[in-house]
């Protein structure tokens, strides 16, 4: 997919400028990076498949929003930042946590509402955090993570520590008012934040076309002079490259940057999804034509980065990690009744 870019600068008095750039990769990724991309995406895919399965067995309750199909976005973006940078997202968050290096056991055990979960079983799928991994949630209210992420970046700039924030949101979030309040303040104060709009085409069951007067979401920062770029979010290399560029922009002190990731979720909005708002053919076609993991797998084989056997070995390793996570999540006890009243206030 050809990337479209709007670049604005204060000197151009806020008029958005579009520059077409070729789809050819300018960044060369090491074999090691490619291998990590593959493994990390596969880990998320298998984790989410398993989560879906054990949800069906009644081990996970409530809402459970799976990230299957969108793996390239978070894996590519996380490759562009350092461990001490901050990450925040909305409620479709399992992939982000794994990509931040959080332990699949702790994430799965939170899904099953157990003591060994990241929030001791009190948060669940949509509300998980890891201070240690600089993952700031996991927020269940659409839009809320955007001012919060802007606040993380505010703190980073205030402390002048060179860190930055990746603030993820969905295409549905892109219509919330607080997002624009945040874009405005982030640009006004030159805050170090990349806003990543994961455009998977549907906000629950409402397509972008049916909800958005301006469907090119990378343009949503134009009135605030925030540059935006549209990226093929099904291609981890395109994501990683765009992420690198956006991160460089932000680290140079130029303020926020918007990346619209064109991606797709294969599963329903949540587990209980009527699947009436899009056709099965559409889902199958997306999956067949542009699956991020399959796409990279073919490349790894073609470039001889991995042999079939080596890929099988990775599959086995990942499967083992997930099996351990499920075992942990099933065997970790439920939180003690006394936990009901702890952690309300300090």
């Amino acid at each position: 997919m050809a990337r479209q870019t709007t670049k604005t600068s204060k000197s151009s008095q806020g008029t958005a400028r579009k520059t077409a750039s070729s789809a050819k990769r300018t960044v060369k990724f090491s074999n090691e990076s490619l291998q990590k991309f593959y493994r990390d995406m596969l880990l998320i895919r298998r984790f989410e498949e398993k989560a879906g399965q054990i949800y069906g067995m009644g081990l996970i309750g409530g809402f459970c929003h799976l990230y299957i199909g969108q793996e390239a976005v978070v894996v590519g973006m996380q490759s562009a930042i350092s461990d001490d940078d901050a990450v925040i997202t909305s409620y479709r968050d399992h992939g982000h946590m794994l990509a931040c290096g959080m332990d699949p056991k702790g994430v799965m055990a939170e899904l099953t509402g157990r003591e060994g979960g990241y929030s001791k079983g009190k948060g669940g799928s949509m509300h998980m955090f890891s201070k240690e991994k600089n993952f700031y949630g996991g927020h269940g209210i659409v839009g809320a993570c955007v001012p919060l992420g802007t606040g993380l970046a505010f703190s980073q700039k205030y402390q002048d520590n060179g860190q930055m924030t990746l603030c993820y949101m969905g295409d549905g979030t892109a219509n919330q008012g607080q997002v624009y309040e945040s874009f405005n303040m982030a640009e006004l104060w030159s805050l170090p934040v990349v806003y990543i709009i994961e455009n998977n085409e549907y906000a629950m069951g409402t397509s972008v076309k049916r909800s958005s007067a301006q469907t090119e979401l990378y343009k949503r920062g134009e009135s605030f002079n925030v540059p935006g770029e549209q990226v093929d979010g099904m291609n981890v290399l395109a994501v990683a490259e765009a992420g690198k560029k956006a991160v460089e922009w932000v680290r140079a002190g130029k303020g926020p940057y918007i990346l619209e990731m064109k991606t797709y979720r294969y599963r329903g909005h949540s587990m209980s999804d009527p699947a009436k708002y899009r056709s099965k053919e559409e889902v199958n076609k997306k999956r067949a034509d542009s699956d991020p993991i399959e796409h990279l797998r073919e490349k790894l084989l073609a470039d001889k980065v991995y042999s079939e056997d080596e890929l099988k070995e990775i599959d086995r390793e990942v499967k083992g990690i997930i099996a351990d996570a499920v075992e942990f999540a099933q065997n970790s006890p439920e939180p003690a009744p006394e936990e009901l009243y702890t952690d309300v206030v300090a």
Binding site: A86, I88, Y136, A144, V146, P147, L148, G149, T150, G151, L152, A153, F154, S155, Q156, Y158, Q159, G177, Q178, E181, S182, N184, M185, L188
Partner: peptide
Amino acid sequence: PITEHGFAGVGVGAAFHGL
């Protein structure tokens, strides 16, 4: 700016991050 929802959230995010 006059943007209560936004700056309240910015404040909370900054508090999460140690300010």
